[in-house]
Design a protein around this nucleic acid. Sequence first.
DNA 1: TATGTTACCATACATCTGTATGGTAATTTT
DNA 2: AAAATTACCATACAGATGTATGGTAACATA
Lengths: 207, 207
Amino acid sequence: MSVEMTEIQKKILEFLIEQKVSRGMPPTLAEIAKNFGYKNRATVQQHLQAIERKGFIKRNHRLSRGIELTIEDKFFIPRPVLGEVAAGNPLVIYPDAIDSIELPTIARMPKDSFLLRVKGDSLKDAYIFSGDIVIVNPNIPPKNGQIVAAILDDAALVKRFYKKRNEIELVSENPEYKPITIDKKYQNFRIVGIVIGIYRSMEKKAG
Amino acid sequence: MSVEMTEIQKKILEFLIEQKVSRGMPPTLAEIAKNFGYKNRATVQQHLQAIERKGFIKRNHRLSRGIELTIEDKFFIPRPVLGEVAAGNPLVIYPDAIDSIELPTIARMPKDSFLLRVKGDSLKDAYIFSGDIVIVNPNIPPKNGQIVAAILDDAALVKRFYKKRNEIELVSENPEYKPITIDKKYQNFRIVGIVIGIYRSMEKKAG
DNA sequence: TATGTTACCATACATCTGTATGGTAATTTT
DNA sequence: AAAATTACCATACAGATGTATGGTAACATA
């Protein structure tokens, strides 16, 4: 597994993992082709052969969906953690991955979702704690009461979301932190996504 | 799901589950036919239609291997309690336990780690809540203070572990539940493994 | 300059896959 | 006795699926 993967091969492997986890089975060549906009299954076939040559998958020839992930034998899949996010006071989001954690394969990671590590204890009553990894889905518009990750003035935070008439309120459930109210027209505010899951490792190695 | 299944339908459903767990994906009609000695896929098709009519599976039409198991959670497959615990592959629901957990078929998963769903709130102060999925490693001997999954008299518990001179103490961090003390020689007690991580999906309890 | 690698395309083909229809036989229900 | 259900079979078919071959273009390497 020491061979290097091209960018496209990495993306295809990621897609294989994502499909396996979310749909419960590997995709067909046609499904892969459709996802990447290929007009042709032969293109996919060639990529899969390259990925197999490099040892990341094993193919059961002539069998539909016969793609086995050799890394998927693991219970945990390494995923990049994109940044640290403050549940209480805003922290800076890191541009590139700051860390990598082993996420259990059961944890659902829909397309485009990413991981953030929480610091601070303002969401204590929402059962999210400092050190937890939150899984953020950027593709779902938030509903009232949901926990969202947001960027406010170049800092990132995780709080409960409430939409009001002309403003948005972000609430910590820890009474030590006061709610933040933002005018809807305020430019330097953006909802990053909603928190769809959390993962916590009991081992104390990662801090 | 109250409709009655014929014996053959039960066997086919079992095969679907077994294949899903062991091979990672549902079988094709041809594979089912081969397993049961049918010379014909149409026979399988008719059985699958009957099983779907009774609500145990959902089929994605015209999609290869498009058989979804509607049973429970996809991860957790309920089985009757008696006799199965000692069998080594415990696929059991413990309905009356204070902190009941469900042992999934994924007990056969790689690295022997498996998943349990927590019910009850005795570990509230350990930040583990009803509905959370804990990841259990059975191969590590527990240390004092670690959270373990254990079986006591046909009930399953998730609690903090403390070893004393002649006995073992299992402590809930919720003061409403008193610590349980077990003599080390007691037969009907077994440590299943230590909890190495937890995962929680937010989608069900937004708001 | 020649060679190889990567990343696509088009066409083609045997086989697989799900589905449909119609038939036989045994058993159960009405 | 008639009707329905269950459990198979054979045949057929459109479309999906994996695979093979040959081609183009961009780029890096020797």
